Amino acid sequence: MNKEEFYSLSFNSNNIELFVEVIGDYDAQKLKIGTYNPNPLKVIKSQGRKAYDIVRLQDVFNFLISPKLLKALESNDLTGWKTYAIESDIELDGYKGFQCTSTCGSPIRPKNSGFVTGYDFDLKTWDGSDFFIPETTMMIICSNKAKEVIESFKIKNIELENLKTLKWYNA
């Protein structure tokens, strides 16, 4: 597999999109990578009104997935992820929290700081999972297989950008 077959996973938002807020304290990073497993995670409506295939939590890292997206991931044997149960004050039947359980090495940073195009990591540090997070970051990367599954199921409000064209800030 070459590096042009990887995509960053981010969100595409609008003003009616539902966001939920966690009741109580939690570690957002540990929740995202699966080292914290709530049973269940209690959430309440924060803003918006429409639950899309991704429902974001109030932190920048975590999100819930719809039954449709869960079925897509499971039925295509995608790897590097797991879910956790939620309890909500509004109807979110079948929604689960998403955790990315796989990693690769730290990003290979360019020498110059500032905005750069293209994101790189050492392929030898990747375990072959369809979803993974580079060490020292919270960015989810997915394989081409995962991208094709997400696109074929017409999953709303997920943005997938090829790492080759990804624009980011190198500090």
Rank of each mutant, 00 (worst) to 15 (best):
Y84C: 06
I150Q: 02
N162I: 08
I140D: 03
D59K: 05
S13Q: 11
E5C: 04
I33S: 11
F115L: 14
F131Q: 05
L9R: 00
L64M: 06
D89Y: 07
L92A: 03
S102N: 04
K111L: 15
G97K: 01
D25V: 15
F153T: 12
T35L: 06
K32L: 15
Q58M: 09
T117N: 06
L41G: 01
G34M: 04
D122A: 06
F153D: 03
D77I: 13
K71A: 12
F11W: 13
T165M: 12
A28H: 10
N62T: 03
D77P: 04
D27G: 05
S152V: 12
L41A: 05
S8P: 00
I141K: 03
V116A: 12
K164I: 15
T103Y: 11
E21V: 08
D59R: 03
D120T: 14
V43I: 12
E159D: 10
F131I: 04
F63C: 06
E87W: 13
A51D: 05
L73N: 01
E87T: 07
T165F: 14
D127Q: 08
Y84I: 09
Y119W: 08
F115E: 11
I65T: 05
G94I: 11
L64T: 04
F63D: 00
F6D: 01
V22H: 03
S75W: 10
I90N: 03
Y119N: 00
T83P: 01
T136E: 14
V116M: 09
I158P: 00
I23H: 08
A146V: 07
E5A: 14
F153V: 11
K156S: 12
